[in-house]
Design a protein around this nucleic acid. Structure first.
Lengths: 206, 206
DNA sequence: ACAACCATACCAACCGGTCGGTATGGAGTC
DNA sequence: GACTCCATACCGACCGGTTGGTATGGTTGT
């Protein structure tokens, strides 16, 4: 064992709480979720909770931080990353997100979007932490766009389009939550995908 | 005076509660908002609240119903409705929404989107009521799309595009709430607008 | 022994909802 | 037109359950 790793399994408890917190927040929201809910789902006691996190808000902030790095890691290791052509790689990225967000089993809810909507007017700490998730996602997507645009020799607003893509995901998730019809995700994201691919096909002398 | 109109002003109290409820829910969400918050903002007592509404959920349901009809009424009487050319009317509609959603003073939050996100997994009544707002908005937009497509003689997926438009609004609102930067609304909606207008310009024999 | 780790009992604040009671004005009666 | 009767509208103290957070004591590894 390394230096840390004290009695019982501290890291395991902390990790369980982070996973359970994200899961609960994404399902029921930050306000509705109780500390007891999270403890039950994580299989730890309330004492363990407040040993590792100062408050429910602190756990949420840690969940958002983990969400941000997890998303970045998932993106960085996604299969589409091995595509060499920048335009195809961009298209592969969008196809990748359409795919994972349409998978039947998994929870169609973004931690950042959920928390941002709930606390934007009352808790600037969590609002900013949520925003960092979006900023991270947008900058990754913007980089893909930049490469693709450079290859095609077209001048497009990569930052604006990245926000458009991120927004489309958030909007699709909301419509899915209201309608419980997953097809809206594929539908909406593929429209953005087609739009972006069409922009890259634009001839400079149109 | 008509038949009703009993002591004090019942209709005024009820209306105040609906307005205050929508305002509070849009700002702080359904769960965070307390009945006392709403009463304070409406300037009525707690007794008056439960005289007019059976529960906080019942008020929210009434607010969503009002939101649906208010949005429909606003859309039906919007200036763009007087535009005779179907394509220009559609473009005017999108410009109209970009305009009102970018206005500095007003609260950039959709009641349906806020409540749907919070209760989709725990309260099917409110979820369905939220969904009706989206269904209504989509059908109105789909009708505009249908007319424009017919005039141009192009065949487009009007229902799917209407969902895309509605989703873009919801997504833009979330990104705004997180970033507090209103420019994302204009940015995102204008991308959808450009996409739709481009689709209408498609020659059938491309 | 000592510190990290965790369990349990507990607390005070809060919140949705209730309840007994009051105020207001209209309808019916004479 | 005064008087009774009653439905609607409203008030605000109160209640019971819930919730985030705490206090305290025990257990485990080093």
């Amino acid at each position: 064992m390394v230096v840390g790793m004290s009695p019982r399994n501290a890291e395991s408890s902390r990790a369980s709480l982070l996973i359970a917190g994200s899961q609960c927040f994404r399902r029921e929201g930050f306000v509705s979720t109780t500390v007891d809910d999270i403890c039950r789902e994580a299989g730890v006691s309330k004492g363990a909770f407040f040993h590792h996190f100062a408050s429910k808000e602190a756990l949420a902030a840690a969940c958002l931080e983990k969400w941000r790095t997890d998303m970045a890691a998932m993106d960085a290791t996604a299969p589409y990353r091995s595509i060499s052509d920048p335009v195809e790689r961009l298209d592969g990225c969008m196809a990748f997100y359409v795919d994972i967000l349409s998978r039947p089993g998994q929870l169609k809810s973004c931690l950042a979007g959920t928390i941002a909507q709930e606390v934007f007017d009352t808790n600037s700490t969590l609002r900013d932490a949520s925003n960092q998730c979006f900023v991270g996602a947008e900058s990754m997507f913007a980089a893909l766009l930049r490469d693709a645009a450079k290859m095609r020799g077209v001048d497009i607003d990569v930052v604006g389009l990245a926000k458009h893509w991120t927004g489309a995901i958030q909007g699709a998730l909301i419509l899915y939550k209201a309608s419980q019809d997953a097809s809206v995700i594929e539908n909406n994201l593929n429209h953005v995908r087609a739009y972006i691919m069409a922009l890259l096909d634009t001839r400079k002398t149109e």
